[in-house]
Amino acid sequence: MTVLDAVGAGADGCEHHAARLLASLEGGRVYALPAAPAGAAIRVFTAAGTLRPFCWADGPRTEPSLLSHTENCKWHGR
């Protein structure tokens, strides 16, 4: 997987780590590498939406920037 940030800088990794990275980026994009299995980019994108960004940060998670996309949608009724 390749994960790109909003300005096009990128990093390659497995689906698990790509999802973690994508969850922590604003405006990130994910692309499957040539050897990736079918559907890998969709799986990463879907997983990233449910993961909390900055998983290494401890403490209470009350700010929207520390919640997953899914959690933020629930809070805002989307």
Rank of each mutant, 00 (worst) to 15 (best):
M1W: 01
L4F: 13
L4H: 06
L4S: 10
L4G: 01
L4D: 02
A6M: 03
V7I: 15
G8V: 01
A9Y: 06
A9C: 10
G10L: 00
G10I: 02
G13H: 09
G13Y: 07
E15D: 13
E15N: 06
E15S: 13
H16C: 01
H17F: 09
A18R: 05
L21R: 07
L22P: 03
L22V: 03
A23Q: 05
S24N: 09
S24I: 14
L25C: 11
L25N: 08
G27L: 08
G27P: 03
G27R: 00
G28M: 04
R29F: 04
Y31V: 12
A32L: 04
P34G: 09
A36P: 10
A38G: 10
G39N: 10
G39V: 08
A40E: 08
A40T: 15
A40P: 00
A40W: 00
A41R: 10
A41D: 14
I42Y: 05
R43D: 11
R43N: 07
V44H: 03
V44K: 02
T46G: 08
T46F: 02
A47S: 07
A48R: 03
G49V: 00
T50D: 11
R52T: 06
C55L: 12
A57D: 11
A57P: 02
D58S: 11
G59Q: 05
P60H: 11
T62Q: 15
T62H: 12
E63D: 12
S65F: 07
L66K: 07
L66A: 15
L67A: 04
S68L: 10
S68V: 07
T70H: 13
E71G: 01
N72M: 01
N72P: 03
N72I: 03
K74S: 03
W75Y: 14
W75K: 13
H76W: 04
H76G: 07
G77K: 12
R78L: 15
R78H: 12
